[in-house]
Computed example of a mutant assay.
Amino acid sequence: MTAAAAAGGDAGAPRRFLPPLRAAVDVRVFDHPLFAGVQHYRDLLLAAEWPAVPALDDRLALPGAQLVEQDAALLADGLHYEIRIAQGRIATRADNWHDLFNALVWASLLPLKRALNAQQCRHIAAMAPGQRNRAQAALTQFDETGVVVCMRDPSVLAAWDAHDWRALFDPSHWRGGSIAVVAVFGHALMEQALLPGRLLVGKCVVVQGDGEAGCIETVTRAIDEGRVLGDPLQLRPLPLAGIPGWHEVQDAAFYGNADYFRPLRAGRQYPAPLPLM
């Protein structure tokens, strides 16, 4: 399997990822910058035992929402997962990394999660049962593998537009603040990052402005108003291991791996960044 396919890249649908058992996770992985947004809940990641779903719900105390254990009794209501969330219940599997990270993202980026759910529900209501449109696919991709990026320097954006990865990942851009990861939103990225060294691809919404403050609010409003995530092709792929300091070895051979740092497809264009509110 190629690196990009394993990470949910443009090669098509990724194979099902099997996370490591809790006891097998090297806790040093949680020092990686990808987990920066959930450090407030680090104890839930490091504990030897899984948090029970009711205890997790009590701990996170999501306003207007409740984590409920996904079991046969819950699923018997026949509701769509997103519709159930809109009614205030987030189905959560016990002893499950994917759903634990999802819950932590709900706690960390609640307005963004709510905006995503509201858009999903609007599309569900407009579609025939069992059918999905491209906007729903985009919303799901962002939910699973989304990253919010802040961009200050238009020349760096031009490098990204062209898939000029060596220019995009010039350390001076990232250390100087020309470009920055504001938030890793995708809980599937966190689950896959449990295996150190995995070559992951984030699917990004970009905000252009002079600082990171306000970026999440900008993306939240754009999702709520339907100005972004109308199609999966609107999402910018970002090979996360290329970010300076995000991978152990980042030499010329690493950045020369065209299976991961993929060239731009003919005719592929990305939307302009959202202006910072």
Score class of each variant (00 low, 15 high):
Gly130Thr: 05
Arg84Ala: 15
Ala36Cys: 01
Leu45Val: 00
Leu116Tyr: 09
Gly37Asn: 03
Ala61His: 05
Ala73Trp: 01
Val147Lys: 10
Leu109Asn: 08
Leu168Thr: 05
Val29Met: 06
Trp160Val: 02
Arg152Trp: 09
Phe101Arg: 12
Asn102Arg: 12
Gln120Pro: 02
Asp57Pro: 00
Trp50Pro: 05
Ala137Phe: 13
His32Arg: 01
Glu82Lys: 07
Pro20Asp: 07
Asp57His: 01
Val29His: 03
Leu139Cys: 13
Trp50His: 11
Ala135Trp: 01
Gln39Cys: 00
Gly78Ile: 02
Val149Trp: 07
His40Glu: 03
Leu75Trp: 01
Ala118Tyr: 08
Ala72Val: 11
Leu116Asn: 13
Glu69Val: 13
Val68Asp: 12
Leu79Val: 06
Leu60His: 07
Trp50Asn: 08
Pro51Ile: 02
Gln141Phe: 02
Thr92His: 12
Ala159Trp: 09
Leu168Asp: 05
Leu34Ser: 04
Asp31Ile: 05
Glu82Tyr: 06
Ala159Val: 06
Glu82Ala: 14
Asn102His: 11
Asp143Glu: 11
Pro51Glu: 02
Pro33Tyr: 02
Gln119Pro: 00
Arg132Thr: 14
Leu60Gln: 08
Gln120Asp: 12
Leu109His: 13
Gly146Arg: 01
His163Gly: 12
Glu49Phe: 09
Ala118Ile: 10
Ala91His: 07
Val156Ala: 07
Ala76Pro: 02
Arg132Val: 11
Gln119Glu: 10
Lys113Gln: 09
Met151Ser: 07
Ala48Asp: 15
Ala52Arg: 14
Arg166Lys: 14
Pro54Lys: 09
Pro63Phe: 04
Ala126Phe: 07
Ser108Asn: 04
Met127Ile: 09
Leu60Thr: 06
Trp165Arg: 06
Arg84Gly: 14
Gly37Arg: 02
Glu144Ala: 07
Ala103Arg: 02
Ile90Glu: 10
Ala55Thr: 04
Gly130Asp: 05
Trp165Thr: 04
Asp58Thr: 03
Pro33Lys: 04
Pro33Ser: 08
Gln141Thr: 11
Leu67Ile: 00
Ala126His: 03
Gly146Phe: 04
Leu46Thr: 10
Leu67Glu: 04
Asn133Gln: 04
Pro111Gly: 00
Ala76Gly: 07
Ala138His: 05
Ala103Ile: 11
Gln70Phe: 10
Ala23Pro: 08
Leu116Lys: 11
Asp26Pro: 08
Asp153Leu: 00
Pro54Asp: 10
Trp160Cys: 00
Leu79Ile: 06
Ile85Thr: 13
Leu79Glu: 12
